[in-house]
Design a protein around this nucleic acid. Sequence first.
DNA 1: TAGAAAACTGGGAGCGCTCCCAGATATATA
DNA 2: TATATATCTGGGAGCGCTCCCAGTTTTCTA
Lengths: 369, 369
Amino acid sequence: MVALFSEIFSPMPNLTLEEVARQAGVSRSTVSRVINNQAGVKADIRRRVWDVIHETGYHPNPAARTLASQRTHLIGLVIPRSVHTFFTDPYFPRLTLGIAQACNQNDYTLSLFLFHTEDDERKLFPRIIRKGLVDGLIVQATNAADELFVQLSQAEVPFIIAGRPMNLTDASYVDVDNFAGAQNAVRHLIRQGYKRIGILSGPLNTTAGLDRYQGYRDAIRENGMALDEHLLVEGDFSEAGGYFAARRLLDSRPDALFIASDMMALGALRAIREARLSVPDDIGIVSFDDLPPATMASPTLTTVRQPIRRLGIRLVETLLDIIELGPYPPRRVIFDTELVIRESCGADRNIREQTNIPRQSAPGLADAN
Amino acid sequence: MVALFSEIFSPMPNLTLEEVARQAGVSRSTVSRVINNQAGVKADIRRRVWDVIHETGYHPNPAARTLASQRTHLIGLVIPRSVHTFFTDPYFPRLTLGIAQACNQNDYTLSLFLFHTEDDERKLFPRIIRKGLVDGLIVQATNAADELFVQLSQAEVPFIIAGRPMNLTDASYVDVDNFAGAQNAVRHLIRQGYKRIGILSGPLNTTAGLDRYQGYRDAIRENGMALDEHLLVEGDFSEAGGYFAARRLLDSRPDALFIASDMMALGALRAIREARLSVPDDIGIVSFDDLPPATMASPTLTTVRQPIRRLGIRLVETLLDIIELGPYPPRRVIFDTELVIRESCGADRNIREQTNIPRQSAPGLADAN
DNA sequence: TAGAAAACTGGGAGCGCTCCCAGATATATA
DNA sequence: TATATATCTGGGAGCGCTCCCAGTTTTCTA
């Protein structure tokens, strides 16, 4: 009863620096130095202070810290309104994972800003770019985000772009080598002997969509093959988009497809199945991403792997660097991709025919990328 | 040049309440009252102050506000380590969307705490539950999270659970009626004339897994059918898990399956296709979730729809209520589910046979739930 | 051993708000 | 018109830190 009474009527006062200092027999300043790992405190005092900190379970108050130091230790992840695939494409959860991990690693907290409606955007954006909410922002690149980037630059909020922005700006970004990845994928199809290779591209008003298209185009050309405009259909990176685009593509009778995302490949497989064609015998496929769906599809997808998690980690690290040292010179990081060969391109079959290697079954949830 | 010079050497001082007050010819307090919509300011003064605020683009400094008011206006979403499906199941992005929208709506900012490794958890958790980082937490229910809930209660951090915790605690939660949803789904299969109905359940050490199993069990029993233990295989909500579980289940020759998630249903379809059986003719299927994959599968999935986005919104609203009024009495919200009939259960076929309704094709990305 | 230099420690000011209370002004009542 | 009352406004204190500077102690040098 007494305990209960005291709990209610004399709540434990908030543990402050001052209180820790008192218990350790030193001053506020000294405890602050210890907490922040600053030099200039004798070793034994430092230890004594740490002891009290651990005993009491003291954690500094973030708001007070922020107010005094002008650093929030918060990073914002901004998904602009135009990225509607956030809720269907496994790409984003994976990217978020990498970002979240890197934040933990660096004692930063991650805030999520999803602009779902135009209203969200109008209301939220001014608040976000006002100094004092976050130390910096990671912004997903989109066709429509370029205006955001200008505003961000003007507001002098440190930020970095996930993916390459459409118009060359002074902004920093981290991206994968979409061009080389696509080129490599198409070269692989050509080596498999496919002759009439179509492309189910991403939106051509995004750099990811465009770069992958150009990689396809160059690989076709360098092999003296003809570019047939009927063999290009533009998708939107989604499964549904892949399905409808593939239905149109099939009319032009390709014998192979380069598909700009795994999700679209899933849709394409559905369309191909409905057309009673078989992969890879009637149509070879190479896609892009290497996300879990690639191993879930039947046949399993040969696909260009992006190191998505590492991309997330690097985004955070580079952003912290920008926060520390300013936005100039712009940082630009491009990750290499890797072609992962599975069943949909026919290479696996060819190898097995020659050497009798057993087919690899779909693995469980590997923790790669 | 002059402009540039002044930009660099006399940076605009941070816009503060005091400065706005000066420009409006009133005091700090009055501006504060206006900003916070408090009574006791004459209408014309109020307007004058708003004008200055808009002209200057003033936004109050969040840290100062937090320090003075002891409110951070931050909500944390915690995904415990054991939820490894976060990165593959579209459930979580959708939930996150609902939560993010509700946060925007209520002028809260959403922070994401993903515990990926045990290390993350040990390091992050004490920081999170210390008062002052967030005003409240939304925690995803898992088999292993019960200990977290106890610690959260002790730390007196307002929190709410997404899903029902395993052990009854005093905690508040928001969940869907998994039991009734599953029961309804199985009843539907029975009505379709299926006789040997198996279940591919979720993990039986989670309430979602268990409740759905019990709904299945009761529906079987109430129809005088026998429970066959060979017709139960436990999965993990993932595609891969569904695939392997279905392979085992098929040995027992069910003529229908109730599958506890859409992702597992996708895996099951893969296994069924490999076994050269057809859905719904050889095997009828009803699953759970109604996420985009349900319309992407072939055949499209009859499935129990959960109102995931509404669930996210309600989580936030209830949490804010707890922050405002305290944790007692515990709030408990249960959402109803809805059976969405598509192709995989055979009902569509039966109806068409009778009435000649054209089959509905897979819709695009509807913005439902 | 004195004096200079280096290493350490403590207190004050201030970050930009909110909240409380006292004082000023407008309005109602006798 | 004088007084009581309701309404409005301003300033002080304080939230819990960081950062700077001045003062104190220790160590080094001649």
